[in-house]
Amino acid sequence: MTQYIIKRLLLLPLLLFIFSVFAFFIIQAPPGDFVTSYIAELAASGSSMDQAQVEALREQYGLDQPMIVQYFRWVGGMLRGNFGVSLDWKRPIMELIKERLLLTVLLGAMTFIISWSLAIPIGIISATKKYSFIDYFFTVFNYMGVATPTFMTALILMWLAYSYFGVSVTGLFSPEYVDAPWSLARAMDLLKHLWLPALILALDGTARLARVMRANLLDELNKPYVEMARAKGMSEWRLVLKYPVHLAINPLVSTIGWYLPMLFSGSVIVATVLNLPTIGPLLLRSLTNQDMFLAGVIVLIYCFLAIIGTLISDVLLAWLDPRIRMEA
């Protein structure tokens, strides 16, 4: 078991290296660099820069160096905890993303809890009451959940809340807490706001997970060990929860591998629509404003979260299923 985790952890730096190259490529991809867009910005506002100033600026950010040097300067800085400065916000990137990252992870965790705690019971009920009214009902719900893009759900809910209740459901804090330091009151306020975006984000995942759970459980319910448990004289609910549900959840755990990354990165759009202070809207703004260092760091953070998601799912799976533990 520990060996298995260590093996997985050893892969982490390699993946991070590949992803950092990838993120760097993204930073470099747009034609020109930040200085070019800065000059354009200045020109638009009527002022200008002379060539010497431009060169000085380039030198300051190391933009005159060869690609490979720039890459290592970037990565080296990050390894020392220096993520660089956002040229758009004129603030250190670390400072910009610190709280937003926390909120992103919180939102993801909340979404995860909601979707799992909805999906598993729905899957169990649909499978054990196959072809009943409730099964059909959940099937319709699942199809709708998968077919409705999260941002549509967000838009529709926002519209309904605004036009029928006159409330705006954007943001994660009430106005008085937006810039307040952390306190219990602020945390409570956050919880009050967090559940709605989490619920919106959870719908899609709930629908997918419930379908997987239903299908897995239907498979398991037909296995001989279920009949054997019945032949031992176990009551139906007890045996379903002890055996087939346990076995049906295992493949579900392996979906965490893609579900967690999807949660974090999927929240970008909903966060933008609902104007949440997570890293998603920051990514969008940095991309539209060509603030590429910030964009690169955020993309790298998303990659990191994705790897963590896969790692968590692998470890959980090994913990739950002795057969996988053995192989590893």
């Binding site: 001989p224 060990y225 009949e227 004289g233 176990m234 009551s235 076995l247 299923d321 002795p322 057969r323």
Partner: peptide, 22 residues
């Protein structure tokens, strides 16, 4: 249920699949 397993017991055909693997 009080009869199954207690008074009438079953030996199934597939011992492999009739034990839960986990």
């Amino acid at each position: 249920r009080s009869i199954r397993g207690a008074e009438i017991a079953l030996i199934p055909q597939e011992p492999m699949a009739s034990f839960s693997p986990v």
